[in-house]
Amino acid sequence: MRLAELPVDDFHHRLAETGIQLQTGPFTVHVRSGIKEFAQLLQRFYAHFPVAQDPAIADFHVRMTRPRGLHRWWHPQVEFLLDGQAPFLPYPLSHAFPLFEWGLNWSIAMQAHQFLMLHSAAVERNGRVLLLPAWPGCGKSTLCAALVSRGWRLFSDEFGLVRHADGQLMPLPRPLPLKNRSIGVIRDFAPETELGPDFHGTRKGTVAHLRSSDACVQQASIPAPPGWLVFPRYRAGAPLRLESIGKQQAFMKLANNSFNYQLLGLQGFQGVTRLVRDCDCYILSYSNLDEAIGAMNRLADA
């Protein structure tokens, strides 16, 4: 059953009382909240995600709740609880949905060591995955959103999840957060994509979420092998430049980019070296999305 198939009243009741188990890629997330505004956005952005009917074992138990105290009367707040613990300070109530998304990312990064985790966007075309590893500010999310709007399958905007056993990438096609100027860029570049409301004044500025397509969600259990490692760098006015780099340089950049390379020890080393071995490796400098997409298409179609 998909979340959208639940009657609205039933959904709100279950979310507030027993919680709902969402299947997001390889993870089952048990989420519980009585906050109506949050529930509405969850229903909108996760409409086509599967809901586990049985009380399956969840990977993450999340509760979005309003903390008690005087604050609740004049500065309403929201807390993200993971297994009953609050890893972050409360946020303004109106930021509940971005807090849920960030909190879930944090939870995955802290716990999902059954995967080699790269801080990377990942999109698929012709059966192989393009990894775009980058730290914030390099234009990773903007390029990822643009590629998805032109037919690439979204794996994730945030995580390259690599299975230890076979080196395949696992999809995690959750809502894609765009920040500040990227919001307007994607609204202009792909007006047909569905962007949610702007959340102003978050710790990352203004944030808006791009809804994952139904097709991407339906294929969320289908992994794919890696094909290309492209380290993107957006520079205003920069000409397009796609430069092949050596394997050792790619290895260093990727190991430094991983959330859990050090923690995984030998598994991390073997995972990163296999990725570098299996992929063509590049650095991409760009300022124009059409040019960058053209270059990625040529890589994938070659």
């Binding site: 050596g246 394997k247 050792q248 290895f251 080393f269 070296t273 570098v276 071995r277």
Partner: peptide
């Protein structure tokens, strides 16, 4: 792991 004349 070795790549040409570079090694890890």
């Amino acid at each position: 792991e070795s790549w040409d004349e570079q090694h890890a």
